[in-house]
Design a protein around this nucleic acid. Structure first.
Length: 337
DNA sequence: GGCCCTCTTTAGGGCCTT
């Protein structure tokens, strides 16, 4: 079987202010150690402990390897005691069964019900996990282009709060001048394809969620670009976006924030412009997924502070599901015909 | 492609994402 080497960059960051009960629950991320298909590597800033909540901790030893994807020597954690494949296979098959099957109407309805309940009871917003994400792609067309890099950051911070990997698009990368990701960096067998990455992604986000809680994925221009692109990739791989995922687009949030400052129309709303407006300077290349995620995380914190938005307000006013987007698109399409 | 703004709404230009 094909051996795939991946680089998951895990950074330890301060807890985010609007997340009131973050870090209260974490489970391990066993799928990353699945030996049969993936050899995963990690970069962790922090201690070498990572494990189950409830006392079932597994100690990892540090070792240094060179990743095959970027050639940068980095510290990694490797488990001395591997998790049994039996458990891993059960975890994986459960997720595949859950997300590959068509969502039931009950599951779809739960998304809307949950948001209404949050509007009535703000306490229900507490178990929500806010995750900023960004994708780099081969272009703007979700039909013709493909994802080549994805990064996520759980705003609750803590161990393993950041996830980043290159993605093999299976097609030529013609816009390397934008992000610096070249064809030879991603079009090779040791970089995972979306089909292989989606179960890992699902498991990672699940590992960050709290029991019964929603994951709220945040991106800049999410409504028009990131979410439709991600949905299209999921669909191509016969997956659906889980019903307990909601999305927030920071573009309208930024517009509101600028209005509140009396800068309506006076300021551009690109990630770069917002970074400059909030005086955010980070090392790393712009248009790389992880750099943009880290920048957006700080911008998002500033925007929510400016707008004085609590979790419940964010969810009520600004969140949407992929189903709502698709229904809106269908409605518009039918309106045109 | 979708959203916002305006020199608008029976429209069109600009911005945002790679």
């Amino acid at each position: 079987m094909r051996n795939v080497t991946m680089c998951f960059t895990l950074l330890q960051l301060p807890r985010f202010r609007i997340h009131t009960s973050g870090n209260s629950w974490r489970e391990t991320f066993p799928i990353l150690n699945r030996r049969r298909r993936f050899t995963s590597s990690f970069r962790v800033l922090g201690s070498g402990n990572y494990g189950f909540e409830g006392g079932q901790y597994r100690r990892y030893s540090k070792q240094t390897i060179t990743t095959k994807t970027d050639g940068i020597e980095m510290e990694v954690l490797s488990s001395k005691t591997n998790i049994k494949d039996k458990i891993l296979d059960e975890t994986i098959s459960t997720n595949l069964n859950t997300y590959k099957s068509r969502l039931t109407e009950v599951e779809r309805t739960q998304v809307f019900d949950m948001r209404h309940k949050i509007s009535e009871n703000k306490e229900l917003a507490k178990p929500v996990t806010f995750i900023v994400f960004d994708i780099e792609t081969t272009g703007f067309s979700r039909r013709d282009d493909r994802i080549i890099e994805i990064a996520l950051q759980d705003l609750a911070g803590g161990k393993n709060s950041t996830f980043q990997t290159l993605v093999n698009p299976g097609c030529y990368v013609r816009n390397s001048h934008i992000h610096g990701i070249s064809n030879h960096m991603v079009n090779k067998p040791n970089v995972p394809r979306m089909q292989e990455l989606i179960p890992i992604l699902l498991e990672y986000i699940k590992s960050r969620q709290k029991p019964g809680g929603f994951a709220v994925l945040i991106a800049h221009n999410a409504r028009t670009f990131d979410v439709p692109f991600l949905t299209e990739e999921f669909s191509r791989c016969c997956y659906e976006i889980p019903p307990d995922w909601l999305f927030i687009d920071t573009l309208p949030l930024a517009r509101e924030a600028m209005k509140s400052k009396g800068l309506n129309g006076a300021l551009k709303l690109s990630l770069q412009a917002l970074g400059e407006a909030y005086k955010i300077r980070l090392p790393g290349s712009a248009h790389r997924a992880l750099t943009d995620v880290q920048k957006l995380s700080l911008i998002f914190r500033n925007i929510t502070y400016d707008l004085k938005l609590p979790c419940s307000g964010l969810i009520e006013k600004y969140s949407f599901s992929d189903l709502e987007l698709r229904n809106l698109k269908k409605k518009k399409s039918s309106g045109k015909t």
